[in-house]
């Protein structure tokens, strides 16, 4: 049954795209720091990059393993913690962007 095999994969790819999106904003913030001659803002960009790496390298693979394991055992796949964590990462990214815009 194809649907059973591809659903966790599609979800994992959605997680990866979200992590890459945070990294893209981090890249824009880094370029902005150099562009506006405020190297101190590189710290904001670096912190955002760490957030993106956390989503891409920790949250996404952790969730994928968890989903595959639980689907295999026929258990519930709900994980409010992961949803909350990635939402907080995106909100922090927006806050970092606001700081970078105000401070230059």
């Amino acid at each position: 049954m194809t649907a059973v095999e591809t659903q966790p994969e599609r979800t994992a790819l959605a997680w990866q795209r979200t992590g890459l999106g945070v990294l893209a904003v981090a890249g824009l913030l880094g370029h902005r720091a150099l562009h506006t001659g405020r190297p101190a803002l590189l710290l904001v960009a670096g912190a955002t990059a760490l957030l993106g790496l956390a989503v891409l390298g920790a949250l996404a693979p952790r969730r994928y393993r968890q989903v595959r394991l639980r689907v295999g055992h026929g258990g519930a796949v709900r994980d409010p913690w992961a949803a909350r964590a990635v939402t907080v990462a995106v909100l922090l990214t927006a806050a970092a962007a606001a700081v970078s815009i105000v401070l230059s």
Binding site: A14, W15, R17, T18, G21, V22, A24, V25, L28, L29, H31, R32, H35, T36, A83, V86, T87, V90, T93, A94, A97, S100, I101, S104
Partner: peptide
């Protein structure tokens, strides 16, 4: 949820691009 978050990220990126 992740698609909504990416929509938000795209708007944030647009904001940074306008300012820069």
């Amino acid at each position: 949820l992740l698609a909504w978050l990416r929509t938000g990220l795209a708007l944030v990126a647009g904001g940074v691009a306008v300012a820069t």
